[in-house]
Design a protein around this nucleic acid. Structure first.
Length: 588
DNA sequence: TGCGGCTATTG
DNA sequence: CACAATAGCCGCAG
């Protein structure tokens, strides 16, 4: 069956632009299609699934229901670009928190089955699996999704492509109901929009992973070389260079004494030997002691080089930078506490000194834009604090806050950040009294999140993401046993800070993703592609002749995103945007 | 070999 | 060293 016939059939089945079509892809073999709420499913054989899906995308422009971004990554590798999706894994994380979102788990949650003892494919399943689907249905008699189908067996048999898509369509339909329920029952009216934006963000993540970040190998190697010298030509030379670097530090201690510079406790002993007594050896603590003894300065310089050598050196480039001048890591659309995007391979913590190696391709420029003071502005929006919203009208939000509080700007900034992080000591805590008086709505919002989290109750962000408070790392509230009263209170306070911050950081992540996917959609027409997302910063790669247009587009997209993310227009958001040849370059 | 602690980097 | 993250090495337990 060709794409045109298929499109006709799907249209006849009621699929219009933006309607959900569940899609499963068996690499090199075919695809399965199904529509939520309808019985029919399509099992289609083709040796080029990506081309078929692209043709359907062009003709139908549906919202593709996908099990996870893995499907989008596979399609993107073959050049297929989807505009819209409903990403089941992403929506599952939104609805239920946590990270695990494989099909069997998602299925169980939505069908009211226990997700704690999911059936497995292993030998442990011998007595608990009376059946494993009947060959053409992936659902077992106990209602669970077949673990063998989920493990990939569906892709071995053409007749299973459609049924597997049918199960996916079922899940999408149930998720849509669940999201509507969150919107209504949990008073999160934008939850459906969040689900859709988070889904589209997964498509963006797939493209970020496949397309990579433009990087100039020679420029990057020159920057690396400034820290650790030229690339060693042999392992022996590498060892010699390493010993030489160590010796630069060790020459400041008495002859014949050798310490392992990579062992914190030995470094502490080494410092004590020259009269520097410190509780730990962190850089910020040693920074002020540079003049006390030359060893301190040598150690800090060594640390910097060692960091580049081990984490951001030649090995890092060899592993992640392709011959095509693209640096690739893995991307996740919603990790961790509050659903921020994360990236591997050091894409999110690359030292700022190396940014000069991130260079636009010939005939291209970067548009770099970062959101200004995003977290306090988001706090104003999600809490509905009118006074704080008024402060967001200023380019520098901390200026009116400082005036209101009668303190200097630096104090105001520390106070606002301290309130969002749950700081209880120092300057920030002292200014908290003024914040409570001037911005009571916002402060109550934060306090309420703190109190809820302290007793172990789950939270939901503005956009509807569940922030689970039951994780092992946070500790169970009021758990019996050996924990002392002091430690129990300390744990509760930590949970409170975590929850308080998750509400702000999480909402900021939601707005950011709406912005990013808006840029992705609007940028297509001029060849502007998002090549890096960094929590509040976007890097867009675009043909040079469209640089100005892309910069305007990025700013417009922020206003569009803000309006879609939060209907309340009283809060102002702004981006600092520049057109640059490398990531290191400031505004021209 | 796995994991917690320490350290450094980013927003 | 507040909130979040990735990542490397050391030291220790199993």
């Amino acid at each position: 069956m060709d794409a045109a016939d298929l499109a006709v059939q799907l249209r006849a089945a009621g699929v219009g632009r933006g309607d959900v079509v569940a899609l499963t892809v068996a690499p090199d073999l075919g695809i399965g299609l199904a529509i939520p709420g309808r019985a029919e499913a399509w099992s289609i054989e083709t040796d080029d699934p990506a081309a078929l899906v692209q043709a359907l995308e062009d003709q139908l422009s549906p919202r593709w229901g996908l099990w996870s971004s893995a499907t989008a990554v596979a399609l993107a590798r073959d050049g297929t670009r989807l505009a819209r999706s409903w990403d089941v894994a992403a929506v599952h994380r939104l609805l239920f928190g946590g990270w695990r979102a494989e099909p069997a788990r998602v299925w169980a949650r939505l069908h009211g089955l226990s997700a704690t003892d999911l059936p497995t494919t292993g030998p442990a399943d011998l007595f608990s699996a009376p059946d494993d689907g009947d060959g053409d249905r992936p659902v077992r008699s106990d209602g669970h999704l077949s673990p063998t189908w989920a493990a990939g067996e569906w892709a071995d048999d053409l007749d299973r492509f459609g049924p597997w898509a049918h199960a996916l369509a079922d899940v999408v339909g149930l998720q849509q109901v669940a999201v509507e329920q969150v919107a209504a029952d949990a008073d999160r009216p934008t939850a459906m929009r969040t689900a859709i934006a988070e889904s589209t963000a997964e498509l963006l993540c797939a493209e970020l992973a496949v397309d990579g970040l433009p990087m100039d190998r020679a420029a990057m190697e020159a920057l690396v070389s400034a820290y650790v010298g030229p690339r060693p030509r042999s392992p022996q030379e590498a060892a010699e260079l390493r010993d030489a670097r160590d010796a630069e530090v060790l020459r400041h201690v008495p002859e014949g004494v050798v310490f392992d510079l990579r062992s914190p406790s030995q470094v502490k002993s080494m410092l004590r030997m020259v009269g520097v007594e410190v509780p730990d050896t962190r850089a910020w603590r040693l920074e002020g002691l540079r003049d006390v003894h030359p060893l301190v300065d040598a150690l800090l310089t060594w640390r910097k080089a060692e960091r580049v050598q081990t984490t951001f050196g030649y090995g890092w480039l060899d592993e992640n930078l392709g011959a095509d001048g693209r640096f690739r890591g893995e991307w996740s659309g919603s990790d961790g506490a509050a659903g921020r995007m994360t990236a591997s391979a050091g894409l999110h913590n690359m030292p700022a000194d190396l940014r000069g190696g991130v260079v636009a391709e010939p005939g291209h420029v970067f548009v770099r834009a970062d959101l200004g003071q995003i977290e306090p502005r988001v706090l104003a929006a999600v809490s509905g604090d009118g006074a704080l919203a008024a402060a967001t009208q200023a380019d520098d939000l901390y200026a009116p806050v400082a005036t209101e509080l009668g303190v200097d700007r630096a104090t105001a900034k520390v106070a606002v950040l301290g309130a969002m992080y749950g700081q209880t000591t120092g300057e920030g805590a002292r200014a908290l009294v003024g914040l409570r008086r001037s911005y009571p709505v916002a402060m109550r919002y934060l306090d309420a999140a703190d109190e809820t989290a302290q007793v172990g109750t789950d939270l939901r962000t503005y956009g509807g993401r569940l922030v689970r408070m039951g994780s092992a790392a946070l500790g169970e509230p009021g758990q019996p046993g050996s924990m002392g009263d002091r430690e129990a209170r300390s744990r509760a306070a930590a949970r409170g800070r975590y929850g308080r911050n998750a509400m702000v950081q999480g909402a900021a992540a939601e707005l950011f993703k709406v912005w990013a996917v808006t840029v992705r959609a609007r940028g297509r027409a001029i060849g502007a592609t998002v090549v890096l997302c960094l929590h509040d910063e976007l890097l867009v790669h675009v043909p040079a002749e469209h640089g100005e247009a892309a910069a305007a587009l990025v700013d417009d997209a922020l206003q569009e995103a803000a309006a879609r993310w939060a209907p309340d227009r009283s809060v102002r958001f702004l981006a600092d945007t520049s057109i640059i040849p490398t990531w290191a370059d400031a505004k021209p």
